[in-house]
Structures are given as C-alpha cells and as structure tokens.
Amino acid sequence: MAAYTASVTVRLKPGVLDPEAETTERALERLDFDLEELRSADRFEIDMEADSPEAAAERADAMAGRLLANPTIHDYSVEVEPAEPAAGATR
C-alpha cells in the first residue's frame, strides 16, 4: 500500500448552461478584464492508501460516478499522484 492523492475534476458537459460562470464572467468584465469565456469546475482532492495508482484511480472514479458528479449534467476526469509527505513529518 502507498499513499496517493486523487484529484477529481467535475465539469458541466459541453452545451449545459452555466449561469454562475456567466455571472462570474460578467463580474470580471466589470472589473475591466478582457476575456473570451469563463468555465467553472469543481475539483476534489482525495488522499487515500491504495495498492497502485491504478487502484487509486479506480476508487476515485467510482466516487465521482456515485456522488461527486451527476451524470446527467457533468463530465469528470481523475488524476492520481503520490501523496506529498505532510509538512513537518520528517524527523
């Protein structure tokens, strides 16, 4: 077993209206920023112990499928990296 951090990014499917992103975009424009389009996404970072990166990815994928994303409106992607040692953990 090893420690991994799985990052799950949940996005609206292309074509699904995102009124919050549109509102955020307008607020940035009101602050005089130039931009073409803004898309928002939710990102979940999940620390876990697993036998392999593949096993960690599979578990995170299942979490996204069962709860973190709603398949009617969302797509999601999963990335797995070895967990960073906690700060101050060295002796």
């Binding site: 699904v16 209206l17 995102d18 009124p19 919050e20 549109e22 509102t23 709603n70 009617t72 409106i73």
Partner: peptide
C-alpha cells in the same frame, strides 16, 4: 428525487442565476 434516480434528469441552477 432526481439525484436518487427515482425520476430521470436533474434540477440545476436557474438560467437567470
């Protein structure tokens, strides 16, 4: 109900926000 799958589809943010 939609989140459970009792009925199809999803209810999400109003178009007007």
């Amino acid at each position: 109900g939609t989140e459970t799958g009792l009925v199809p589809g999803a209810f999400t943010t109003n178009a007007s926000a």
